[in-house]
Design a protein around this nucleic acid. Structure first.
Lengths: 148, 148
DNA sequence: TAGGTATATTTGTATATACAATTGTTGTAA
DNA sequence: TTACAACAATTGTATATACAAATATACCTA
């Protein structure tokens, strides 16, 4: 990936700006590739994230705040995101008995099955995207990203 | 930035997955910070990008396809994006005489003035975001990002 | 030069997201 | 116990984006 080539400029960009642009371009590529891979499952990246979080709960329910905490979206959208998953039968939702303000969200067996399928696809995509890296380089990259 | 802490997991994430999540988290932070900084100017990141591209044209008009080529958004949205800038008086738009299918877009003096103001703010933000990096590290990071 | 094809942009529409306001529930202090 | 603040989630609304179809102009060729 060559930044100057993609954004078609001949000037040299200051290093800090260039870095941020570079990150944006990489992220765009990742999102594009991932979305395309998830499309056959009719699941968005965010929906996939929610399913993963729910599976991580190992049977325990997660409430909306918890989901929200571990995601990027805003609370209001998490509600609607779960609505979508509910409509697909991937999650179950009920009001928490101890605290009726909260809702409890579980992944359903259907959700788990689908998630397992998606996992395979996503792994492949991750392989493809990081194809040019060896282990050492990935570690180095993660180390550098920590500085943000 | 600690990935595990942010997404609140205790399991260790495979390195490739972790890298992609890491990039997403970094990018979210960048977008959030940038958007907030641009807010007082009532300009979105994409609108800012268009203005920068137009300034780079140095008087020469850019048509929509050109803008689109150098951006991330889809064509259909570039039209509407320019609509917004037009409404703010930051750009001018007219039909190309040589090829009436094309439109020519220029930045206006008002647009240039505003852009100069924004530049200062954006530079500061870039400084803040990349604050923990030295020059060597930024180069290394750019080098690694090239592998995507 | 008429008809079809390619090009450049716009419009329509469904979905996604951000932000603010609202609803319903719980905790608490007078 | 009542009134009020805090909490958890939802709803409303404006804006953003993706994708497909439509419009308008230019090019080409039989």
């Amino acid at each position: 990936m060559n930044v100057e080539e993609i954004i078609k400029t001949k000037k040299d960009i200051p290093l800090k700006s260039r870095t941020l642009i570079h990150l944006t371009l990489v992220q765009n590529k990742i999102i594009e590739t991932m979305s395309a891979a998830l499309k056959p499952y009719d699941v968005s990246i965010q929906q996939f994230n929610v399913l993963r979080i729910l599976r991580g709960q190992q049977g325990k329910p997660a409430n909306l705040s918890t989901l929200n905490e571990r995601m990027v979206t805003k609370m209001s959208n998490t509600t609607r995101l779960v609505d979508k998953l509910l409509a697909k039968g991937f999650v179950k939702r009920n009001i928490c008995k101890e605290n009726r303000r909260k809702v409890e969200i579980y992944i359903t067996p259907t959700g788990e099955d689908t998630l397992m399928q998606i996992d395979k696809t996503v792994s492949k995509v991750e392989e493809v995207i990081t194809n040019n890296f060896n282990n050492e380089e990935l570690k180095k990259l993660n180390h550098l990203l920590n500085k943000f």
